[in-house]
């Protein structure tokens, strides 16, 4: 199946068109979520429970130690909060959409998306918004604020903006890696195992990088940058950055991850043969 390549450069008017499109997708999602209010609230509760579980793990560890590497208790709590915030933002914008890619391939519904006059990756990645993610993301921020209070931390506005920007880069890393893994669906139809596997990587993002040395640390900073995603933004807040090149590294890795996922996507879509009749 040969495809017209979507326009790669996005002119200002194009940009406006995509913005309007995205607004429509938002409206759809809000309507969809509000149809099942009970379910919507239950999922928020599930996420809160799992967040509490992660925090209690930290609580139990610090019953038995004062430091992990050079991280104190409230610093790690802040890290878990930040990691939750980043993960929930990723979930709000991208997760459901990435997960559904394998279903689109399996059922052949991807055909219709390829025919629409928009960038296919844009449409696949942003089709649905998971509103619960925003609620839970705020909870992550609240936990961060509390731990910041415990640490006696004051955050000037430009540092807060820097933090949010770095979180954005973190979300982008999660998205690019997840999209990359989801694209494996073009090779094996049963891709759920792979998607599930990504949850295991999330677990690493909320651990303090000071706990790791050697190969593990290098692997999860320079290859799969999980130890950067939440660690670097928090280290900016608590003045723990080894140097500002750590921030640069995070941004560079997020661009690199996106580039790899885009290359793989282009390669995969060329392989796509429709499943339906």
């Amino acid at each position: 199946m040969s495809l017209p390549t979507p326009p790669q450069s996005v002119a200002p008017s194009q940009f406006k068109r995509y913005l309007t499109l995205y607004a429509a997708l938002w409206r759809n999602s809000v309507v969809r979520e509000m149809t099942f209010k009970g379910n919507f609230l239950m999922w928020i509760f599930v996420e809160i429970l799992w967040f509490a579980l992660q925090l209690s793990f930290i609580g139990v560890i610090y019953l038995h130690t004062e430091h992990i590497g050079d991280w104190t208790k409230w610093e790690v709590v802040m890290l878990v909060g930040a990691s939750h915030f980043i993960q929930q933002m990723f979930q709000a914008f991208f997760l459901t959409n990435c997960v559904q890619l394998s279903e689109l391939v399996r059922t052949g519904r991807l055909d219709f998306m390829l025919l629409l006059p928009v960038n296919t990756r844009f449409l696949i990645s942003l089709r649905q918004v998971d509103l619960g993610g925003f609620v839970n993301g705020m909870l992550g921020l609240a936990v961060m604020a509390y731990s910041g209070h415990q640490l006696g931390l004051t955050v000037p506005i430009e540092r807060a903006i820097g933090f949010l920007f770095l979180c954005g880069a973190g979300v982008f890393i999660h998205y690019s890696l997840m999209f990359l893994l989801s694209s494996v669906a073009f090779w094996t139809v049963r891709a759920q195992g792979i998607v599930w596997g990504y949850y295991n990587l999330f677990n690493i993002a909320r651990l303090p990088d000071g706990a790791f040395k050697g190969g593990f640390r290098i692997f999860f900073r320079f290859l799969i940058p999980m130890l950067l995603v939440a660690n670097v933004p928090v280290k900016l807040l608590i003045h723990r950055l080894e140097s500002s090149w750590e921030m640069l590294l995070l941004v560079a890795m997020s661009l690199a991850c996106f580039a790899v996922s885009e290359l793989f996507w282009q390669y995969s879509i060329r392989r796509y043969t429709s499943a339906s009749a």
């Binding site: 094996t188 049963r190 759920q192 195992g193 599930w196 596997g197 295991n200 677990n203 790791f212």
Partner: peptide, 24 residues
């Protein structure tokens, strides 16, 4: 393949937890 991925991937956080305890 699904199971193999599952078993393999779950070793990543396990490794992280063990290393975390070792540091502690």
């Amino acid at each position: 393949t699904n199971f193999l991925f599952r078993a393999g991937f779950s070793l990543v956080p396990l490794m992280a937890t063990i290393l975390l305890w070792r540091t502690i």
